[in-house]
Every structure is written in C-alpha cells, then in structure tokens.
Write a protein that binds this DNA or RNA. Structure first.
Lengths: 156, 156
DNA sequence: CCAAGATATTTCAAGCTTAAAGTTTTATGC
DNA sequence: GCATAAAACTTTAAGCTTGAAATATCTTGG
C-alpha cells in the first residue's frame, strides 16, 4: 500500500477545544442574564420557564418522560419542577384512564396566560442579547450547530 | 432553555431565537456527556474540573474572587467547590501576609498531576464530540462567539 | 392466570447554584 | 485616630441536578 502521511487524527484538536470553551462561555453568559431577568421581572426561574415552554407547544399535554427527554434533564429533576409548578397552579397532572403509571402534564389556563407574557419578553431579550449577531450569521451558526446535533442524536 | 420555536411570529428575532435554542441544546448535550465521562472515568465533576482548569493556568494561584469572576459563577458557589477540593487534597488555600481577608488558592502537586491526566482525556473527548465540525468552521464559529462575548464584557 | 420482566415515575442522598445576609479585614474621610 | 464605607469571603435558605434505588403499573411467555 502507498500509505501517505496519516491525516493527523487528533493533532489539530486545539481549535475545537477553543470552540467548546467559547460555546460554553457564551451560553453561560446568556443563561445568567436570562435567569436574572426572569427572577427580577417575573419572579420565576429558567427551569420553570423551560418546562412551561415545552408544555406550551403541546396543548394536548406531555408525559413526564417526554418532558425529561425533550429538556435533556433527568426524570427526577422534572418531578420536582412540575411539583412546584402544580403547587403554583400553573400546571396540572391529569391521570390517564389507560395507563395508571403515567399522567398527562398540561398548562392550566393561568399557566398558559402567564407563559405567553413571559415568552414575549424572553424573545425580546434574546433579540437584544444576540443583537450583534447578524441574521445571516445567526442562520449559518444555527446550521452548523444543527448538523452537529444530528451527529449526536439518538446516542443516549 | 431547550424550548422549540415559539409561536410569536416576530419577523426579525426569529433567527436569533432559533440560534439561542441550538446553542443551548448543543452546550447542554456536550456538557451532559462530559459530566458523565468525568464521573465514570475519574470520579469527579464538571465544576471541580473547571476550578482545577482555572488554577492550572495560574501556577501563582488565584483569589476566590478571581475564580468566581473567571468561571462566571457566584462567590458562594466557589467556596463550596474549593472546600471539597481542599478536603480531597487537590487544592490549598494559602493565607497571605498582605491582606488577611484573602487567600491564594493553588493546585497541590497531587492536584496538578491529577488535572493533567484528566485534561488530556478531556481534550480527546472534545475532539471526538466536535469531530464533525471542520477546523475551518470551528475557527469561524469561535470568531463569531468571541465577538458576541466582547459585546457583553463588562456589563455585569 | 401469573411470574418475570419492562416501563413510568417518584424518592433519596449528595452535590451544585444563586441571591442575600453575615463576618472579618482593609481603606478612607474628616 | 476612628467611624464609616468598601472589599473579600463565608454562611444560609431555597431550589436545581444527577444517578441510583424504590414503587407502582403494565406486558408477555407459558
């Protein structure tokens, strides 16, 4: 065989490591800002917002396991957050006839109304925080991240 | 927040919101994978790794406030993580002559050795997890994220 | 039917995280 | 000097997070 110079498998990992660090810092910076604003302006938290956002897209409701899969967090975690949302009257757990292990989690009317308000502010904040990223860059970056993600989907 | 596209049909913010969601999902996916491997292979955690990584770059040591600023986390948070690292013998708090409020936090020899091992594995993992991102894309993406960050530096 | 396994969820212990309040030490204005 | 403010850090309470163990329910092969 005419084995040419091997394509240096890891030799160039430096740029990827740098990318990861930037990625992490960017998302942490934005996350911190969002958390602070959610707390200050709506007296809520990011995890609660995440759960409500997921439920908002699913008027028919979601199972606990749907939620944890969609949000990329553990089962036990969702239990606690939903417990608190239920106790605040924003969400309900509806027992199902068919399978008594599960329950459909849904936004209440109050939860829906509350989320719509917060989501509008949230979208504005993101526009502001990412204001310096041009729409074109945003689309290109999104594309890169999407292809990255599809590389990982279904691994866990 | 790992929410899907919100129904708000605001014309211009849409792409940025989508970008934010992708960014968050990507970093959470990678973070989860790293956390799991750190636990399984080295019986440690991401926050511990982050602190040790910061200290590794600063052989002369860092103040608690330096650490919390650099890592983008709260003061009290760093206190707990450093406490645990100290109790494991990986880090020391050296009282300073000048200012008795502060102490220099440094890696111990054991901590340095331990971190070097873990960091090597970590760099390999990142190379693997971001393997589908070309080096060129990685550099371009890093550039975008860097300019974004500089937009925010000094705001808090 | 029913035992054995699979699923869906909750509980638990340990650790991470923040914001706010408290402690100790240093710096400053008068 | 010395009261007062500022700075560096720790403590605290509440909530988030995970992985593992426990519970309850459903499914399936015999």
């Amino acid at each position: 065989m005419v084995a040419g110079p091997l394509p240096a498998p890891s030799g160039t990992g430096k740029d990827r490591l740098r990318l990861w660090i930037r990625l992490l810092r960017a998302s942490r910076t934005i996350e911190a800002e969002l958390r602070e604003r959610l707390k200050k302006e709506f007296d809520t938290t990011l995890p609660r917002f995440d759960v409500m956002a997921a439920l908002y897209r699913a008027p028919e409701g979601m199972l606990m396991s749907d939620l944890s899969r969609f949000l990329l967090v553990s089962n036990g975690n969702v239990t606690g957050i939903v417990d608190r949302l239920v106790s605040e009257g924003l969400v309900t757990r509806a027992r199902r006839n068919g399978d008594r292990r599960t329950s459909m989690v849904r936004l209440t009317d109050e939860g829906t109304k509350s989320f719509a308000t917060i989501a509008a502010a949230h979208e504005g904040w993101i526009g502001e925080l990412l204001g310096k990223v041009s729409e074109e860059d945003a689309r290109r970056l999104t594309g890169m991240l999407t292809s990255f993600r599809s590389n990982w989907e279904g691994r866990e």
